[in-house]
Design a protein around this nucleic acid. Sequence first.
DNA 1: GAGATAGGGTACGTCGAGTACCTTAATCGT
DNA 2: ACGATTAAGGTACTCGACGTACCCTATCTC
Lengths: 194, 194
Amino acid sequence: MGSSRRRGSELEQAILRAAVEELTESGYVGLTMDGVATRAGTNKNAIYRRWPSRATLALAAYRELIGADREPPDTGTLRGDVLELLRGANNHLSAPAVSGIVLGLLAAAADDPDLMAQLRDSIIDAGSGLWLTVLGRAVTRGEISEKALKPRVATVAIALLRNEYVTRGTSSVPDDILIEIIDDVYLPLLRSPR
Amino acid sequence: MGSSRRRGSELEQAILRAAVEELTESGYVGLTMDGVATRAGTNKNAIYRRWPSRATLALAAYRELIGADREPPDTGTLRGDVLELLRGANNHLSAPAVSGIVLGLLAAAADDPDLMAQLRDSIIDAGSGLWLTVLGRAVTRGEISEKALKPRVATVAIALLRNEYVTRGTSSVPDDILIEIIDDVYLPLLRSPR
DNA sequence: GAGATAGGGTACGTCGAGTACCTTAATCGT
DNA sequence: ACGATTAAGGTACTCGACGTACCCTATCTC
């Protein structure tokens, strides 16, 4: 009794959990293969048998960390909805060290097109459906033109938030900046003629 | 004859030049202290006597790489001016490996507030004066409201371009995307009432 | 129960950051 | 002009971390 050895997906999950913990505690730079192995109670062999490099493991852990999808808010007004969406994204990005993680991953994936493509999908498409839902309702209410559904336009708010993280590097964007983005840029843009 | 040993700023410039070359050839990840030392024909001591870490050296080299300021364009129309500015920024960011360099620096500076502040200044404020000049002229022409001079609004185009680099990770953003940013987002926003 | 499969343990090779220490050239003060 | 001080050159080292190799052992399958 006792000497049970984990195999397959059970071990895989344990490794991923350990990687997520390392990631949230110390960011991408602090995620080491030895560290994950130790924390998962295994060794590097088991990791390298599943992920070819530190970067791919970190990406897998990041996707795990992102976790479950949210539901589109429905506050009754367009402004309330988009503000709620932006706050949600901000909460997500400001979690322990997400912005640092993403930056690290981006830098690591810079010279690996395949990895970059996967990362792109994980970052960009996260929650883009929510925005389209909210904007779509506003269009059918006649509140804004359907031009607003163009991806380039619809994603402006989240792009500006992302930019805020990149350039400011703060751990959380204050609420009044979110409001500024919505009231000074996003809503005027959505409501602009043609 | 022959055995002249460089000192002071002469050596410093040689090191910086070497660092810039390493940076443009292999990005931030590829910049090694030994590499820079060898390329500059010196050794790591001389580098560490001037910059305390690889990250600070890379930042200094990046500033060197950015180089000279440009002049504001004057095409006669607001659209022509901002398009020209955006193309200029795109050319700059698409140079050899600038976007990778910036990402690497950002990731490295994530846990060093001081470095992050310097980097921020180098990235963000680069050329922000140009935009204000161009927008200011359009305001005095009565073409747009002075609300457009609010930083949050004025920087939207460059923020979206930056976002394009972060999320797409391409080495150069195609011109039709620049036009889309201008025509679908930036100009409608600048011209929107209140 | 024999053989294939996969995890565990451990020891490497390699590379790069940063440090230490000594030798040697250039500059400066007198 | 010449000794003292400053800074560059050379080299070797520690340390941490990625990635690999090899061999042992538990578990699953036929």
